[in-house]
Structure formats: C-alpha cells, structure tokens
Amino acid sequence: MNKKIITATMIALAGFGLAACGQQSSSSNAKSSSSSTSSTSHQKSTKTASTASSSSSISSSSSSASSTSSSQTEKIDDRTLAVMVGLQYNQEWFTSLINNEVGTGVYFIDTPLDSSTSPEFNGYLEITGNGDAASDVFFKRDGNNVIYTTFEIGEDGVMADGHYVKNTIPMDELIENYYQTSSQKAEVAKYASQLKSEAELKNQN
C-alpha cells in the first residue's frame, strides 16, 4: 500500500516537472519570437530612415543645382543675352557682322520697343545688322525662357513672300550652349563690347 502511494506521488511530481518545463520552453520561445520581431522591426526602421535620408540628399542636391542655375540666369544682362541670342539664331551671320567681315557691325537696341504699327514686338529688345528685315532679331525674356523672332525670306529670296518666325528657348540651354566655359564667357564678353549702340544706328541712318 505504501509502495503504491509513493509510486503515485512520484508520477504526480514527474507530471508537474514536465508541465513546468513545457511552460518554461513556451516562455522561452515567446521571448525569442518577440526578440526576432523587434529585430526585424528595427531593421525595417533603419532601412526606412536610410531611404528617407537618401531621398532628402537627392532633393537637396537638386534644389541646390536649381538655385545655382537660377542665380546664374539672373546675372545675365541684356547685352550678354543679345550676343547669345545672335549666336543661337545664326552663328555664322552674327560673327561675320560683329567682326566687320560684312556689313557695318551689329547694333543693339536696348530700349524695349513700343510700336503701334508692330504691337507684336512691344517689349522686345533688338539686334540688327542695319539691313533688311532678315538682319533683325527681336528678343525678350519670358520667365526662364527667351523668345526670339526672326524674319524668314520667302522662296526664291522674295522678301514680300517672307514671314516672321517666333522661337522659344530655355535660358539654361542658351547658357549651356554659349556661356558655360571660361573661354565661352570671354568670347561672349568680347562680342558684347563690340555691339554698337542705338545712337550709332541713328547716326548711320
């Protein structure tokens, strides 16, 4: 009888021991799972922060480049712009005139036009070779763009059949084409100094 009681007691104690081990194992697994979840969450958070930092850096760089471009655009005076527009329209025509290889040079009308006979050119500045309409280039700023209008002669060189053509080009593109390097800036500055004034044009006429 005593042996049966002792045996039953030992079995009961063993059962309690196994249950305790099961609870401890379950608790350990739960802690491990929680730790893993926390680690994964931390990694995601770190990646998100890294991505946000990278995006911020790119945005900052883009903003800086835009600011630099805008600053350079604002420093372009009308005389410098006149040269760049002339080169953009027809580089060979402009350089041959400015260097006095043909004609009498290039005249710069730096007073905005105000004409009731040609209201479409009101507010424009002008460079001209003091010849016919085909040697006139009208231009003006339009925000970050430059509008320039030239006369296209008709077929067979007939002026009466010609017409005006309006072109628009971003200021940044003009700068990239003609005012980017030190040598380009020096060349443009030289041409700008050679532009003749409106008063000289009137005396010429």
Rank of each mutant, 00 (worst) to 15 (best):
residue 103 G to W: 03
residue 149 T to R: 14
residue 76 I to S: 03
residue 165 V to T: 10
residue 118 S to K: 15
residue 167 N to L: 09
residue 170 P to T: 01
residue 90 N to R: 15
residue 104 T to C: 12
residue 89 Y to G: 13
residue 111 T to P: 13
residue 77 D to P: 03
residue 160 A to D: 15
residue 101 E to W: 07
residue 127 I to F: 03
residue 161 D to N: 12
residue 136 D to E: 14
residue 167 N to M: 07
residue 142 D to Q: 10
residue 111 T to M: 08
residue 138 F to T: 05
residue 137 V to D: 00
residue 140 K to T: 01
residue 119 P to A: 05
residue 106 V to K: 05
residue 85 V to E: 08
residue 111 T to H: 13
residue 104 T to L: 09
residue 157 G to F: 05
residue 106 V to D: 00
residue 127 I to M: 02
residue 83 V to Q: 06
residue 148 Y to V: 00
residue 123 G to A: 04
residue 143 G to A: 01
residue 95 T to F: 04
residue 87 L to M: 06
residue 134 A to M: 08
residue 81 L to H: 01
residue 132 D to K: 14
residue 84 M to K: 05
residue 139 F to I: 00
residue 72 Q to F: 14
residue 99 N to R: 12
residue 157 G to R: 07
residue 172 D to S: 14
residue 127 I to T: 03
residue 78 D to G: 10
residue 157 G to S: 03
residue 87 L to F: 01
residue 105 G to P: 04
residue 156 D to V: 04
residue 135 S to W: 07
residue 167 N to T: 02
residue 83 V to W: 05
residue 71 S to T: 08
residue 144 N to K: 11
residue 169 I to G: 01
residue 164 Y to C: 09
residue 109 I to M: 15
residue 148 Y to W: 06
residue 141 R to K: 10
residue 137 V to R: 13
residue 102 V to T: 08
residue 112 P to Q: 06
residue 98 I to P: 00
residue 127 I to V: 05
residue 118 S to Q: 14
residue 136 D to F: 13
residue 97 L to R: 15
residue 110 D to V: 10
residue 101 E to F: 04
residue 108 F to N: 01
residue 75 K to F: 06
residue 119 P to E: 03
residue 100 N to S: 11
residue 172 D to N: 15
residue 115 S to C: 12
residue 107 Y to S: 01
residue 90 N to S: 14
residue 164 Y to T: 07
residue 98 I to W: 09
residue 147 I to W: 03
residue 86 G to I: 01
residue 96 S to L: 05
residue 102 V to R: 13
residue 87 L to A: 09
residue 169 I to A: 00
residue 116 S to V: 10
residue 92 E to S: 11
residue 140 K to H: 07
residue 124 Y to I: 03
residue 151 F to M: 10
residue 153 I to A: 08
residue 96 S to Y: 05
residue 67 S to N: 08
residue 147 I to P: 05
residue 139 F to P: 03
residue 113 L to E: 11
residue 97 L to D: 09
residue 171 M to P: 02
residue 108 F to I: 02
residue 91 Q to R: 15
residue 110 D to S: 12
residue 125 L to V: 02
residue 125 L to Y: 08
residue 77 D to F: 06
residue 162 G to E: 04
residue 72 Q to Y: 15
residue 130 N to C: 11
residue 129 G to Q: 03
residue 99 N to L: 08
residue 134 A to V: 12
residue 114 D to C: 12
residue 132 D to R: 13
residue 125 L to W: 00
residue 136 D to I: 12
residue 84 M to S: 03
residue 67 S to A: 11
residue 154 G to S: 02
residue 164 Y to N: 09
residue 125 L to T: 01
residue 168 T to G: 04
residue 139 F to D: 02
residue 107 Y to H: 02
residue 67 S to V: 00
residue 145 N to F: 08
residue 78 D to T: 12
residue 169 I to D: 04
residue 149 T to K: 14
residue 109 I to L: 14
residue 118 S to D: 10
residue 156 D to S: 15
